[in-house]
Design a protein around this nucleic acid. Sequence first.
DNA 1: CTTGACCTTCCAGTTGCTGGAAACCTTATG
DNA 2: CATAAGGTTTCCAGCAACTGGAAGGTCAAG
Lengths: 133, 133
Amino acid sequence: MNIGDVAERTGLPAKTIRYYEEIGLIHPLRGTNGYRSFTDAHVHKLAFLGRARGLGFSIEECRALLALYEDRGRASADVKRIAKTHLAGIEEKMKELSAMRDTLADLVEKCAGDHRPDCPILKDLSEVGQDAP
Amino acid sequence: MNIGDVAERTGLPAKTIRYYEEIGLIHPLRGTNGYRSFTDAHVHKLAFLGRARGLGFSIEECRALLALYEDRGRASADVKRIAKTHLAGIEEKMKELSAMRDTLADLVEKCAGDHRPDCPILKDLSEVGQDAP
DNA sequence: CTTGACCTTCCAGTTGCTGGAAACCTTATG
DNA sequence: CATAAGGTTTCCAGCAACTGGAAGGTCAAG
């Protein structure tokens, strides 16, 4: 199977698939013409990677997950630990975004948004930051 | 004022301040010794940038906000538009993260996390993706 | 005079791709 | 068989927003 077919089947861009080979996530064979040659197992692996990336796992986490996936003797605890760590990171990021959103929503609401120059948004940004008002 | 003082006053790393000069956000003068020389106005600007970045505005958005800030004849509508667009982006990101979190939390909960190899997390990642179950 | 704390520039690396150029291979059609 | 279109290859560069480190100049104190 050529890279184009794999791209279509996995939904991953061919560029990304080449990149994943470059960083050692997959090891497709090569045909006599130099083209990468993929098997169903490669497609399966790439789909796995696509889904893991879709859940926000980093490349290194994906590498670890893939290794565990291929290790019949793995302990599910190892998988769970990675997922939990990642989950914690996501929740952390959500908290940060949530704080930003609250502040921004408040400022946006307060801003008249007309032709006049007075602007609570700029005012807030230009004021000395207070951690605990 | 030297860069170290400015770093301390604004909370921005000196490296970041140099970077902001490099990309044209600020234009400190230079002393005869080649050291950057900052005024209170620079400190103010940098603090503005720090707070805008803290709210997640991109560098280009910060540049635009700074320009508006220094334009006495600005229309607050222009500021509000930038903020609203950014706010929408944040809410978008939060939705994505929220979906990831829900899926992950579900999988983590289902995973025994012991010495056994059976793992719903890996199982999910290896399964054919269904958009609408 | 020397030590140590600053400051300077420049180069490289981070994350995860993405775009583009130049060149080769394959397939379909005239 | 020639040619054109489309697929594939490699390599190089760039995105965002810094961050780290090396090599060297400067300054104030003892």
